[in-house]
Amino acid sequence: MSPQRAMVIGVLDGVHLGHQALLARAAQGGLRVSAAAFFPHPKTVLGQPTPPPLTTWRARSRELRKLGARVLRLDPRSGVLETPASEFIQDLLAEHRFVRLVVGTDFRFGQHRTGTPSLLQELGSRLGFEVQVLDDVQVGGERVSSSRIRMALADADLDLANALLGRSYEVLGRVRAGQQRGRTLGTPTANLHPQTMLPADGVYVTSSRLPGGCWVPSVSFVGTNPTFGEEARKCETHMLSDPEQAIPEGAGWPLQVAFKARVRGAVRFDSPEALQQQIHHDLEIARQHHADHG
Rank of each mutant, 00 (worst) to 15 (best):
G229Q: 10
H280F: 10
A274Y: 12
D159K: 11
G110E: 04
H238S: 15
D270M: 12
R167G: 02
G14C: 14
R108H: 13
M239K: 02
Q195W: 08
H96E: 11
P188A: 13
R176H: 10
S146W: 09
L134N: 02
P53M: 15
G30L: 11
V216T: 07
E170C: 14
T114I: 03
S147E: 13
D135A: 15
Q132W: 05
D270W: 07
Q288K: 14
A261G: 12
L74M: 12
P199H: 12
R108A: 11
K43I: 02
H16Q: 01
R25I: 05
S118H: 13
L12K: 04
T56H: 06
R150Q: 02
P254S: 06
A27S: 15
A94S: 14
E142L: 15
V71Y: 07
V205L: 12
L192E: 03
D75A: 15
A232P: 01
G265T: 08
H193D: 14
V257H: 00
I9C: 08
Q195S: 13
M7Y: 02
E63I: 03
V15F: 06
Q90M: 13
V267M: 15
S2T: 12
R60Y: 08
P51N: 04
E284R: 15
Q48A: 13
E142R: 15
G166K: 02
W253E: 09
G18R: 06
V45L: 14
H19F: 02
R25V: 12
L192R: 01
P211Q: 09
V139P: 08
H293A: 06
V8Y: 00
A37P: 03
G212R: 13
G213D: 06
L123S: 00
G265I: 03
W57R: 11
G115Y: 01
M197T: 02
A36K: 00
G229H: 11
E273V: 06
D292W: 02
I9V: 10
V102K: 00
M7R: 06
R233H: 12
E231W: 10
H19T: 03
L134S: 00
V11K: 09
R60G: 09
R70C: 09
C214F: 04
A163C: 07
G250E: 07
G182D: 09
I285G: 05
M7W: 02
L23H: 03
M197N: 06
M197Y: 07
R174H: 14
S34N: 11
L46D: 03
G186L: 06
S118M: 10
S86P: 06
E230N: 09
V222F: 12
S61Y: 02
F259M: 05
I9K: 00
E284Q: 14
G294F: 14
V203R: 04
Y169Q: 05
E170R: 15
L210F: 00
R70D: 13
A85L: 03
G173C: 09
R148D: 05
S220V: 07
S218D: 03
H16D: 07
D91F: 06
L93W: 00
D157C: 10
L165V: 00
G30P: 04
G202N: 02
G178P: 00
A190Y: 06
D292G: 09
P49V: 01
G294Y: 09
P53K: 04
